[in-house]
Design a protein around this nucleic acid. Structure first.
Lengths: 343, 343
DNA sequence: AGTGCAATTCAAATCGCTTTGAAACGGCTG
DNA sequence: CAGCCGTTTCAAAGCGATTTGAATTGCACT
């Protein structure tokens, strides 16, 4: 059932039917209702392909996922972000198109999205320091919103980000207040923007209290269970082991906990741990009482917000960059306690 | 730069240019090369929207993700599966379109995909017992491949699945061979097909050795860290605690390990654990020596295979259902050992 | 009755490609 | 040299919507 058929059945021209369905004002209310009813009765759905060609809009948003085989880019965060963004797209009649491409084909993927006209905008994931993709997207002329920020970039861009610096600063201060002075940082890869900011929050807090940094207490790696474990094992085996850890993710946190318990220590009593909790739907930080004390910020919510921002940008084309900084909560769980008194 | 412009520039008709680019035989080789060169030089990319309208194909595959807020459906498995499938799509010039919809809108989502013509086929995720979506897709007439199987369905359908029954049967036998007779099953939700099959593998193996089933040793819940933890805590606190666990996922396995260690026991020495490992890219089961003994099967690989199957079905429309059963490996890690001798 | 205007409706062009059916061109054959 | 055929090329008709510009209608007002 297409527009022409429907029009014939109604004894109207396609023009009028199209207008009636799309809510144009120049159509008689009685006619509109007749059309609406007929459309519903015959279960008419306009053909997306035709709409797209006629309007020149793709009614779709692209997400390009570089397939770094060696890294965790196809990461757990991503699934939840997508879920949040997807909700927004569905509600607004947009499609989400995902391009999974080899690392080196990422640039071409963006260009194709634009030149073949399959997306009206994109969300940029996992920004790095001075991320070149921002300049690329500017050049291509494809509207975009960055999930995160890219330190060192001079071009303006739209973004939605968590206040990572502040979150880790507060977490560090919280540990300091509990008497911990040797705090191990188990960070993500420090070419990622969020990791850079978290580190800054951590070092700022220590500096403010006049505590010198100890390189032996600062690790940076992928956020997997195993690397969390390794980092913690190494720090705990050092000459001056930490009494607390600040960890970049729930998953690395589990590795850290394994290292702690394997050493016969008890998390929350002997060693405190604070993680960053992205509030993933399948990776809840405990039930009533959280397992880990954590800085928490919902990635899914960020997805919703970023998607809304992008759709808004696509339709209204504002000329100032849109920015949205989300604050993380600091939630208290069972993994923190006062520093053990010196013996 | 569109087809018409390019044709004018070349002094040819759009017809010929189109044919030259699409490899039709009825065009002079010399002309074809001239066209190809010009296309590259002017960086011509055919407009996808126009191609789609003209050919009536969407050149896209849909994945519908019901947004069950209460469950872990947007699960970690999903991200990796998508990554695998996405690779295949990109390579073949297909788009992947993701629809994230509220649970109750799932049926409508499939119908829309078909009637608005935005996908040529779909992948069906997380099939359940007697899954009604299979009949739905048949009715709609949208080609599909199921990731998994749906026990109790009589209609034919295409699928790619892991031999879950066999995997858990082998794992159980392995534990039995080590002398364990009280084996706790920490399963996924048992309305999911894979969980049903895994349970069958477990019970079959026990039955074959004449070991009676103990309901107290069989749990079924979402595969989260917390529910793994709870199930294990409950079993370990029982009057006749298990000496081994068979666990549905890496994540629940971490919860089980937490329960074990919290009790002052050591995994691999006091209690053995086997998990099912989906070989997720961000959730590796250790490095050189796996942490967990596991039945392993790559979800990403399954994604690739399912996508290939679907594209093949779309283009060749075979009239017999396509089926592919993948075997899981049993890999030995540090989490299993002989059953402790009775005391 | 004639004019002007607002409210409706419609025919036709358009989006950028594919594809059908026909035309143009040469070369070969009888 | 006419006729036939294979090779190349082209004009034009879709695909199914939107949108422009024009036509129709009814009504109020002179």
């Amino acid at each position: 059932m297409n527009l022409k058929e429907l029009a014939t059945k109604l004894g109207l021209s396609p023009t009028t039917v199209s207008r009636a369905l799309n809510g144009y004002p120049e159509v008689n209310e009685a006619t509109r209702e007749r059309v609406m009813a007929a459309a519903k009765r015959h279960n008419y759905r306009p053909n997306t392909r035709a709409i797209r060609l006629a309007t020149g809009r793709a009614m779709a948003v692209g997400h390009v996922i570089p397939l770094a085989t060696r890294h965790e880019i196809v990461n757990p965060i991503f699934a939840d972000f997508i879920a949040g963004a997807g909700e927004t797209y569905s509600r607004n009649g947009y499609d989400m198109i995902l391009s999974v491409v080899p690392d080196e084909a990422e640039e071409q993927a963006y260009r194709d999205l634009k030149s073949r006209g399959s997306a009206d905008g994109v969300i940029l994931h996992a920004p790095r320091l001075e991320d070149p993709r921002i300049a690329l997207l500017h050049e291509i002329g494809l509207p975009f919103v960055v999930h995160g920020r890219a330190t060192g970039t001079t071009l303006p861009y739209n973004w939605v980000d968590v206040n990572n610096r502040r979150a880790f600063q507060r977490a560090t201060e919280f540990l300091l207040d509990l008497g911990h002075t040797r705090i191990g940082l188990v960070n993500g890869l420090e070419f990622m923007d969020f990791a850079i900011r978290r580190r800054k929050g951590y070092t700022d807090a220590l500096a403010a209290r006049g505590i010198p940094l100890d390189p032996a207490l600062m690790a940076s790696d992928e956020m997997t269970e195993v690397s969390g474990y390794r980092a913690a094992v190494a720090m705990l085996a050092g000459p001056k082991p930490p009494t607390a850890f600040l960890v970049a993710s729930m998953i690395s946190g589990m590795g850290v906990r394994r290292a702690i318990e394997e050493r016969g220590l008890r998390m929350g009593r002997d060693i405190s741990v604070i993680i960053h909790d992205d509030d993933l739907s399948y990776m809840k930080n405990g039930g009533d009482v959280p397992i880990f004390t954590a800085t928490r910020s919902s990635v899914r919510e960020a997805g919703r917000i970023a998607a809304e921002m992008l759709l808004d940008i696509i339709s209204t084309q504002p000329d100032t960059p849109q920015e949205r900084l989300l604050e993380a909560e600091l939630i208290i769980g069972q993994s923190t306690g006062p520093a053990p008194s010196r013996s």
